[in-house]
Simulated scan of single mutants.
Amino acid sequence: ALEAQRRKLEKDLAEARRQLAMGGGGAAASGPEEVGGVQLLARVMDGVGGKDLRPIAEEFKKQVPDGVIALIGTADGKAAVTVAVTGPAAQRVSAVDLAKAAVLALGGQGAGGRPDFAQGGAPDAERAEDGLAAVRALLAG
């Protein structure tokens, strides 16, 4: 019974974090920016682990039907990177290349996935903004 209760509480906490990340105030609520002719929605999400980033990226795809979603979650001093490419932008941009650039900027080894969705991890959550800067730089050319 305790194990079932723990799983339910973990699920509820993950959902609460996702809701907070989606509707957080200030910069988190701003829309996508244009970088190198591509719409980019880039966010650092404190307290959000790697496995929680994918459903958040799926939600953000509704806001960015043609562009890039780059999310960096920071938890326990580590960083997780998720990059999704939507619509026609997928013909011009690789999620794997963008995720690798972000992970390398964070001090990690690399990232992997599909051309439209990639993930990776890094040991240094303090450099999360550097990861997003690397994505912007790659998109800008």
Score class of each variant (00 low, 15 high):
A16D: 08
A16F: 14
R17F: 08
R17E: 13
R18C: 09
Q19D: 14
Q19P: 02
Q19L: 15
L20P: 04
M22D: 05
G23Y: 03
G23D: 15
G24L: 12
G24H: 12
G25W: 09
G25S: 12
G25V: 04
G26M: 06
A27W: 00
A28M: 12
A28T: 06
A29Y: 15
S30A: 14
S30R: 10
S30Y: 12
S30I: 06
G31C: 09
P32R: 04
E33Y: 02
E34R: 06
E34D: 10
E34L: 04
V35H: 08
V35F: 09
G36H: 09
V38Y: 04
Q39G: 01
L40G: 07
L41Y: 09
L41F: 11
A42H: 05
R43E: 02
V44S: 12
M45K: 11
M45E: 09
D46Y: 14
G47R: 05
G47Q: 04
G47S: 10
V48H: 04
G49W: 08
G49L: 09
G49T: 03
G50P: 10
D52V: 13
L53W: 08
L53T: 04
R54Y: 14
R54M: 14
P55K: 14
P55Y: 11
I56T: 15
A57T: 00
A57C: 09
E58S: 13
E58G: 13
E59C: 08
F60W: 10
K61H: 06
K61D: 01
K62P: 03
Q63G: 02
Q63K: 06
V64N: 00
P65R: 02
P65S: 03
D66F: 09
V68I: 03
I69V: 05
I69Q: 00
A70S: 00
A70E: 05
L71Q: 02
I72G: 07
G73S: 07
T74K: 01
T74D: 01
T74E: 01
A75G: 02
D76R: 11
D76Y: 05
D76W: 08
G77S: 03
A80Q: 07
A80F: 07
A80S: 13
V81M: 09
T82A: 13
V83C: 03
A84G: 07
A84V: 14
A84Y: 13
T86R: 09
T86F: 12
T86L: 12
T86G: 05
G87N: 11
G87M: 12
P88I: 05
P88A: 14
P88W: 15
A89L: 13
A89Q: 08
A89W: 15
Q91D: 12
Q91V: 04
R92C: 02
V93T: 02
V93A: 12
V93R: 03
S94L: 05
S94E: 02
S94W: 05
V96S: 06
V96W: 00
